[in-house]
Every structure is written in C-alpha cells, then in structure tokens.
C-alpha cells in the first residue's frame, strides 16, 4: 500500500508555504482533537481532587482550633466540643513506628533483589510474594496481626497497629525502591568496581545515593497510604479517649478510625469532629511529604 501525500504547496512569494493553514485539514483536526482530549483529561483528574480539598477544608476549618488539636475525645459522640489529640498522637506514633520498621527493611530488601538476588529463584519468589502482599486487603492484614500478635500478648496496642501498617507498607517500599535502584545506570557500578570498590561499598556510596530521591518518594507514598488506613487500626488498636504515647501498653486510636467512628453517627457534633480529623490527617500527610522532600533534596544528585 502506498500513501500519497499531497504535494507541498507554495506560497505566493515562491518559497515553501510554512503556515499552519497549508497542512491537510485532517491533520489539523487530529491535532486539535488530541489537544482538547489532553486538556479534558487533565480537568477530569483535577476536578475531584479540588472538590475533595475544598470540601474537607470548608467543613473541617469550622472546628479547627488549638483546643481541637489538644483536647481529649469526648466519651459520648453526642457531646459538643472536645478534640482529636489522642487520635493525632496515635497516628503519629503508630505510623512513625510502622515507617521505622517497614522502610529500612523494605530498602534492604530492594537492595538484595536488585543488587544481589537479581534473577535467582529466591529473589523471584520474594518479588512474587511482595506483589501478592501488595494486593492483600488491609482488613485481612488487620485480622492477621490480630490473631498472630494481639491474641498472643492479650492486649490491643498501638504497636499492633504499627505492625499491621508495616506489613501493608513493606511490599510497596520494596517494589518502588527496587524500581528506583534499577534506574541507576550500570556504568556507575562498573566505574566504582573498576576503582577497586567492593560491592557493598559501591551499593552504599554510589547506588543508594543515586536512587535516594526516588526511594524517598516511594516510601512516602507508602507512609501516606498507611496513615490513612482505618480497618486494621480499628481491629488491633482498640480505642482511647485520652492520648496514649505508649506503643506497647494500652489501647490506642488514630485519625482514620476516629473519622470512621464519628462520621457514622447521626450527631452533628461528631460529624464536625470527623471533618476536623480529616483535615488534620491531610495536613499531617502533607507535612510528612514536605519534610521528606527536604531531606531527600539534601542527599539528591545536584545536576548543576
């Protein structure tokens, strides 16, 4: 099959016609269509995002105050006022502990997979299991921690919640970090090797710094996801109404669990608290992101 293009037109001046009008109508039409589709897709993606941000901000701002952030949760949903301090404390310590467990383990796992295991049977098995683990619903992970830890120690604790969140984060951290390590050009490993560096030294001083900003992004995504988990928190950490900083003793709570509990009542005061908790959670996750970006930018590769 031969495609015949229309002969290039010439402008009045005799030179080649370079104006857009000289293009075939179909090409111009396709171009406009593609541009419109791309803008449309962008708008479609931004609208829900903007609506969520607007709704949470407008409804949550009403209850937001210093006392909301520092006061205990009322024992009765019906009661007005009160705050979310216990849930904020719970979210910070539980998510923080989960990140401390899952991120180092996940990054080491990724280093093994990409630098040492490669296509060995063990590495392939780990990769497969990580992929399967990514798909495990969070409530299942909550139940798993409940029977394997909570029943063992006989108490719902913040640490149990951290364990469940760590299990949810781990596969995400492993797989995203491995992808980032894979992007590090092999030439850098070879250059380091040719200078007489051992493999662990190369990994530590060349490969990881080159991948650090991507690893941070991936880990952050995992932290943000874990901070919003509700089901495992409700199952394994129980509930408290005053702040509990101790991970290993006594029940705890977290913002998503409080959003769920308060929003599912019919009392306006509780619903307001749920909106306030939602806003707080979003701000906390945003805060994590900013801090992590700042840290990774200090390590990151300087292009100039």
């Amino acid at each position: 099959m031969t495609v015949t293009a229309p002969p290039a037109t010439r402008s009045a001046a005799g030179g080649p016609d370079l104006t857009r009008a000289s293009l075939a109508g179909r090409r111009r039409f396709t171009n406009h269509l593609a541009t419109a589709a791309i803008w449309g897709a962008l708008l479609l993606a931004v609208i829900p995002l903007a609506l969520v941000a607007y709704t949470v901000l407008s409804k949550g701002a009403g209850v937001m105050s210093l006392s909301f952030l520092t006061e205990d949760i009322p024992n009765s949903y019906r009661r007005e006022g009160g705050g979310m301090a216990p849930a904020i404390v719970g979210t910070l310590v539980i998510t923080g502990a989960a990140a401390l467990m899952a991120i180092p383990l996940g990054v080491f796992g990724a280093v093994y997979l990409n630098e040492y295991g490669k296509q060995k049977p063990l590495a392939r098995l780990i990769r497969l299991m990580a992929d399967v683990m990514t798909g495990v619903p969070s409530i299942v992970m909550g139940l798993f921690v409940y029977i394997s830890w909570v029943l063992l120690v006989g108490e719902q604790t913040g640490f149990a919640g951290a364990l469940a969140l760590a299990c949810l984060m781990l596969p995400v951290v492993i797989r995203s970090s491995e992808e980032m390590l894979r992007l590090v050009p092999d030439e850098l490993r070879q250059a380091s090797m040719a200078l007489g560096a051992r493999k662990w030294k190369t990994t530590l001083t060349v490969v990881l710094p080159a991948a650090i900003s991507g690893i941070t992004s991936g880990s952050l995504l995992a932290v943000a996801r874990a901070a919003g988990e509700t089901a495992p928190i409700i199952i394994v950490t129980g509930i408290v109404f005053s702040p509990n900083w101790n991970l290993f003793e006594g029940s705890n709570t977290a913002l998503p669990a409080q959003i769920f509990r308060n929003a599912s009542t019919s009392f306006p005061a509780a619903q307001d608290r749920a909106w306030g908790a939602a806003l707080t959670l979003i701000v906390i996750v945003l805060g994590f992101t900013v801090i992590a970006r700042f840290i990774s930018s200090r390590f990151a590769i300087k292009e100039r």
Partner: peptide, 18 residues
C-alpha cells in the same frame, strides 16, 4: 578487588558519579 586497584579502567561513555 586487589587486581582492579592496580589495573584501572576508563569506559566508552564518560561515567562520572553523580
């Protein structure tokens, strides 16, 4: 490792560390 410390290598594509 001892071999490469005494016999170095420069590659086809310039590959400075970042």
């Amino acid at each position: 490792i001892q071999v490469r410390r005494r016999i170095g290598m420069v590659f086809q594509k310039p590959n400075p560390f970042p």
